[in-house]
C-alpha cells in the first residue's frame, strides 16, 4: 500500500482536431499523497479539464499510467471504470449537477445504490454526511429549495458517499458568490484537515487555490510550476522541509527557517 492516492506516469493525451493533432497532455507526471489538498491552475486550453477527466476515469489517456490507489486505470474497460468512479472517485461539479427531482438525502444516496449497503445504512450515512457539510435538518429539501452554496454542499456530501480515495472538484466555486465561495473552500479545507480526505481541485481563482497546500500550474499539457499553498500552515507543516510544527513555533525546529507563512496566512486566508 503506497502513500500515494494518485500517481500519474508519462501520461499523454492527443486529440485529433481536424487534421491537426492537439497534445492536451504531454508526458505529464504527478504524484498526489493520501490526505493531500492540491489545486490545479492554468489558462484555458492548458489541459486542466483533460487531466481531471483522465484522473476521474471519464477519459482515457493516449499513453501513460494513471494509478488510483495503486490501480492502473488507463487500460481498464468501461465495465471496470465505472466501479473505479463509484468507489474511488468523488466528483464535485461547477454546476453541482444534483438531480432536481431528488431531495438532498436521495442525491447523496445515489452513489451508494450499487454498493452492498442496505437501504437503512445508505440513509443513515447520507444523513451523517449532510450533517458533516452543515445541512442537518435540510435532508428532505429538493435542490430548488436550497441556495447555491447549499447545493454545492449536497454535491460534496454526495462525492464523499462511497468514501473515495480522491475528491475531484472541477471549479467547485465557479458559480458561487463570495460568501458561498468562502464557505465551500472552508468546508473542503476542513474535510481535508479533519478527515484527511484527498482533494484535487481545478480552479481559475488564485484566492481559492491559495487555500490548498499545493498549487500546480499547468501549461500546454505539462506541469510547469508548483507552489505551496497556505493550507500547509493550517496543517502545521513547514513549507520548506515539510516537517511537523507545533502551533506555537515561530521557526521550524527542523530546518531553522522562519515560518512567516503562518502569520501571513492569518491575514490572507478567508476569515
Amino acid at each position: 500500500m503506497s502513500e500515494l492516492a494518485l500517481k500519474i506516469v508519462g501520461v499523454s493525451k492527443v486529440y485529433q482536431l481536424g487534421k491537426r493533432n492537439v497534445n492536451a497532455l504531454a508526458n505529464l507526471n504527478l504524484d498526489v499523497k493520501k490526505g493531500e489538498f492540491a489545486a490545479i491552475m492554468g489558462p484555458s486550453g492548458s489541459g486542466k479539464t483533460t487531466l481531471l477527466n483522465v484522473i476521474g476515469c471519464i477519459d482515457k489517456p493516449t499513453s501513460g499510467k494513471v494509478l488510483i490507489d495503486d490501480i492502473d486505470t488507463a487500460g481498464l474497460p468501461e465495465s471496470e471504470l465505472y466501479k473505479i468512479r463509484r468507489n474511488k472517485i468523488g466528483f464535485v461539479f461547477q454546476n453541482f449537477n444534483l438531480l432536481p427531482y431528488l431531495n438532498a438525502r436521495e442525491n447523496v444516496e445515489l452513489p451508494m445504490e450499487m454498493t452492498t449497503k442496505s437501504k437503512n445504512e445508505r440513509t443513515a450515512r447520507a444523513n451523517g454526511l449532510l450533517a458533516t457539510v452543515g445541512l442537518a435538518g435540510r435532508e428532505e429539501h429538493r435542490p430548488q429549495r436550497l441556495s447555491q452554496g447549499e447545493q454545492q454542499r449536497v454535491a460534496i456530501a454526495r462525492a464523499l458517499a462511497n468514501d473515495p480515495a480522491i475528491i475531484l472538484a472541477d471549479e467547485p466555486t465557479g458559480n458561487l458568490d463570495m460568501k458561498n465561495k468562502q464557505d465551500i473552500v472552508k468546508l473542503l479545507a476542513n474535510l481535508n484537515l479533519k478527515q484527511g480526505t484527498t482533494i484535487i481541485l481545478v480552479t481559475h481563482d488564485g484566492q481559492v487555490a491559495a487555500h490548498t497546500e499545493r498549487i500546480l500550474f499547468l501549461n500546454d499539457g505539462k506541469i510547469t510550476k508548483e507552489k505551496e499553498g497556505m493550507h500547509l500552515a493550517k496543517k502545521n507543516i513547514c513549507p520548506y522541509c515539510k516537517a511537523k510544527l507545533q502551533p506555537a513555533d515561530e521557526k521550524c525546529p527542523n530546518c531553522g527557517k522562519t515560518v512567516r507563512f503562518r502569520k501571513k496566512a492569518q491575514v490572507r486566508l478567508f476569515p
Binding site: I58, R85, R86, I89, F91, N97, L110, M114, A159
Partner: peptide, 16 residues
C-alpha cells in the same frame, strides 16, 4: 444528457 453524464460520472453502470 447532462443528468445521465452525472450518473455515469458518480459511478452508475451502463446497465443501470
Amino acid at each position: 444528457t447532462k443528468e445521465i453524464g452525472t450518473l455515469k460520472a458518480i459511478g452508475f453502470s451502463n446497465r443501470t
